[in-house]
Nucleic acid binder design. Structure first.
Length: 785
DNA sequence: GATTGTCTTTTTTTT
DNA sequence: AAAGACAATC
């Protein structure tokens, strides 16, 4: 991208006065349409930008931010910009730097949580914490709550800690901290542990304070408390943030809303919120669509600008999405339009089971590739993450490189969490949760009995577990064996702490992992995952080099929850640091939720079945509100695509090892029929699947609107023939010597077992497996026998 | 205190 | 199917 802002060192004075002049002189404004332009230039006073999908929201936001800085309305450090994801934040930083032609250092740009954490660290003592407080994740929280339940003799099977954890989180989302306990008591309907939940909540907060820890919700909750009880401090922040920008406003919860209102409660109220009520998909996390619907009332004199021209999707896609979302009530209402082509209709395909669905989508993707479509431009968006598995298996076997975005996270892995617990113990000896986690990992003969004693002392004297351990090694309360072992561990930690000055943090981490016996533990572990775990530990050691020190690292992992590269088919180890670049172009697989804000040429939407999408739980728990949110999710899915959307549903699916049959999603019928083309199931029959594919499809799968079996696809007829032809022809093609394997080689594949190479073409192999028959496989997954 | 085997359960979305 | 919880056993 060129550098539109390079123009001007002299411009800034004039540009404030005349917009037309500014427009001419500031080329970065030139490619905006008139609504976008006014959204950028209306810098003063409260502004709500209602930006439909694909209307250039991000662009407006980044340009606006650059504009404010470029015209010297504020310095970077006087601008607060909040996003929901770290990815969005990162992109914004990049694009602003691009527009300005230099990095905008000092910007307060980040997620609600990371900014709140920053503010809280500066003022932690006002809520009884030290500035080096730990940020707990859900796992820590649940463990803690479990302990509290236990101490009250509450059966944690009947009332699981996880449930309580979400309840507490929910309260915090609603802006209720432990100071509002009366209101919580009213809210709590006593359904958890006979109404003990609020009082456990109080205990929990007390524990957090002792632990010098804050959970996710506290980051905001504490900030709000601080702001409310320290007007001077609040006003210093208010003065500092001359301009506030908020992305994805429709997803703010009450706590975030209160936080923003406090910060924006100045005379000028220079707050600009960008959002789309139709894309509110985080209600389950406490998001209130009401916030966006109420904006004009909340901020007096607010202006509203609508962005309705869509630059992304084809006419068919846009109409389909609009038709669908039109079934929702209580919208602000927008009419998206485009000058683009009508494009391809949305195709709908029914399949027999999840495997067939994956197979057909795999075929479609191969066709797209042949047509020259880049894998990077294709995405599969699923409702629930278990759906990714079928695709992974399929793509592994046919050799399509993919990445699962937002899959299991690096830092959530057991070995990583253990390693992190060691670090936490190192820098924060009083971190009880870390202490508990690693005291007997690897095994040191310090089991439950010893731990109980340590607990007793710590409770009796109101000191941390570490402190209580320090006392216990002086006494005879522990068995001799346990005592020695504990003493050794404590000494080890002291020694490691003494090394902090003389060693780099990554060297030290390695030393700790080795000397503690943690590495050995996995070396001697015979389970198939242990090599991967060791690999991950190595990854962690090298990732930590990227950070200044342990504390920066800890902050990073507790706040930067997304691992941006995702889990890939190329590489099982996951990268924490931001600058890893993965060479190959890859297909993306992710949940609909995490797809928000992204766009692709081709989008596959599998699993459109009643019960899965809309999800049964959403319907059960929240009735029609739940349904509407699911519908918005569908809307988000559709509008991710530029060129083509292909929807799939399956008659049967295996869930928890049980076959479940379902009917097509109601959403399928809610898409206007003009924009849809249905693919009769029996035409989709694929060679792998000949025998079972068309069992009683016809009667069963015709949707109420009669989509199935009524229309044919205009584009390439379903490719089973093409695929077959290609399959049969391939052996005739010239074979390249570049291949690591030759025909006749005996090989092993980690999923399919033993087989014989039939053909080799570069890294693509065709193998006849002893157990599963012929498969196309990429050589990366193959080893010689 | 550790190990082994049996029984149970499984939340959709995530900062 | 897989992971976790729990009990029985070494």
């Amino acid at each position: 991208m060129s550098d539109p802002l390079k123009v001007s060192k002299t411009v800034s004075t004039e540009s404030k006065t005349v917009s037309m002049l500014a427009k001419r002189q500031q080329p970065y404004l030139q490619n905006l349409n008139s609504e976008q332009l006014s959204a950028v230039e209306e810098t003063e006073g409260p502004l709500l930008v209602l930006a439909g999908a694909g209307t250039g929201k991000t662009r407006v936001l980044t340009t606006r931010l650059s504009h404010i800085i470029h015209t010297n309305r504020a310095r970077p450090s006087e601008v607060l910009a909040v996003t929901f994801t770290n990815k969005a934040a990162r992109q914004m930083v990049e694009r602003v730097a691009e527009l300005l032609g230099r990095p905008a250092d000092g910007l307060w740009l980040g997620t609600f949580h990371s900014i709140a954490a920053r503010i809280l660290r500066q003022n932690a003592e006002l809520v009884g914490l030290r500035s080096d407080f730990t940020i707990l994740d859900t796992d820590d929280q649940t463990r803690l709550l479990k302990q509290l339940l236990k101490s009250r003799n509450i059966d944690d099977k009947r009332w699981p800690a996880r449930t309580l954890c979400t309840m507490i989180q929910r309260w915090k989302d609603q802006g209720l901290s432990s100071n509002n306990i009366e209101r919580i008591e009213i809210l709590d309907k006593g359904e958890f542990a006979n109404g003990e939940a609020p009082s456990i909540f109080l205990d929990y907060q007390k524990r957090l304070e002792i632990l010098n820890a804050a959970d996710f919700g506290d980051l905001l909750a504490h900030c709000i408390t601080i702001f409310k009880s320290n007007p001077d401090l609040l006003s210093s922040y208010q003065k500092r943030f001359k301009y506030i920008l908020v992305d994805e406003y429709q997803d703010t919860n009450v706590a975030q809303y209160l936080w923003l209102r406090l910060l924006a409660a100045t005379e000028d109220q220079n707050i600009c919120c960008v959002g789309d009520d139709d894309q509110s998909i985080y209600g389950w996390r406490g998001a209130e669509v009401g916030n966006i619907l109420r904006f004009e009332k909340d901020f007096s004199g607010a202006k509203v600008i609508r962005l309705e021209r869509n630059y992304r999707s084809s006419g068919n896609i846009l109409e389909a999405a609009s038709g669908l979302i039109g079934k929702n009530s209580g919208r602000l209402g927008k009419t998206l339009w485009t000058k683009g082509d009508q494009g391809l209709p949305i195709s709908i395909t029914g399949t027999w089971d999840g495997e067939e669905e994956a197979r057909l989508i795999g075929n479609e993707i191969e066709i797209l590739q042949e047509e020259g479509q880049c894998l990077e431009e294709i995405a599969i968006l699923v409702r629930a993450s278990f759906q990714t598995r079928a695709f992974e298996e399929r793509f592994l076997s046919i050799g399509i490189p993919y990445r699962v975005i937002g899959g299991p996270r690096f830092y959530e892995r057991q070995e990583i969490r253990d390693a992190i617990a060691y670090i936490r113990m190192l820098v924060q000896p009083d971190d009880d949760l870390a202490f508990e986690r690693i005291i007997n990992v690897p095994k040191r003969g310090l089991g439950d009995a010893s731990l109980q004693i340590i607990h007793q002392i710590s409770r009796a004297k109101n000191i941390s577990l570490n402190a209580s351990a320090q006392l216990l090694v002086q006494t005879d309360d522990l068995s001799k064996k346990a005592r020695n072992s504990l003493a050794k561990l404590l000494e080890d930690f002291n020694r490691w702490r003494s090394l902090i000055k003389s060693h780099t943090h990554w060297e030290l981490l390695k030393i700790i992992l080795d000397e503690s016996g943690y590495t050995d533990m996995w070396l001697h572990d015979k389970s198939p995952q242990s090599p991967g775990r060791l690999e991950n530990l190595k990854e962690l050691v090298s990732a930590i080099e990227e950070f200044e020190g342990f504390s920066t690292f800890l902050e990073h992992i507790s706040l930067v929850m997304d691992n941006e590269e995702g889990r890939t088919s190329q590489n099982n180890a996951i990268i924490v640091a931001n600058d890893a670049n993965i060479p190959t172009k890859m297909l993306s697989i992710m949940t609909l939720n995490s797809a928000k804000g992204l766009e692709f040429n081709n989008v596959f939407l599998p699993g459109w079945e009643e019960g899965l999408f809309p999800h049964q739980l959403a319907l059960d728990e929240n009735g029609s509100t739940g349904l509407e949110e699911e519908r918005r999710l569908a809307y988000v899915g559709l509008t991710r695509a530029r060129k083509q959307v292909q929807i799939f549903f399956s008659a049967n699916r295996r869930i928890y090892n049980q076959w479940v049959s379902s009917i097509p999603s109601r959403f399928i019928d809610e898409i206007p029929s003009d924009n849809v083309i249905a693919k009769p199931v029996n035409q989709t029959t694929h060679l792998d699947n000949v025998n079972k594919a068309h069992l009683n499809v016809d009667e069963k799968w015709i949707s109420p609107a009669g989509y199935l079996g009524t229309k044919l696809r205009p584009r390439k007829e379903l490719n089973s023939n093409d695929v077959r032809a290609e399959w049969e022809e391939e052996p005739a093609k010239t074979r390249h010597s570049g291949s690591k394997f030759n025909s006749g080689d005996r090989v092993i594949h980690r999923k399919f077992g033993l087989g014989v190479v039939k053909h080799a073409d570069g890294d693509k192999l065709e193998i006849l497996f002893d157990k599963v028959g012929r498969k196309k496989v990429i050589d990366r997954f193959i080893e010689s026998e």
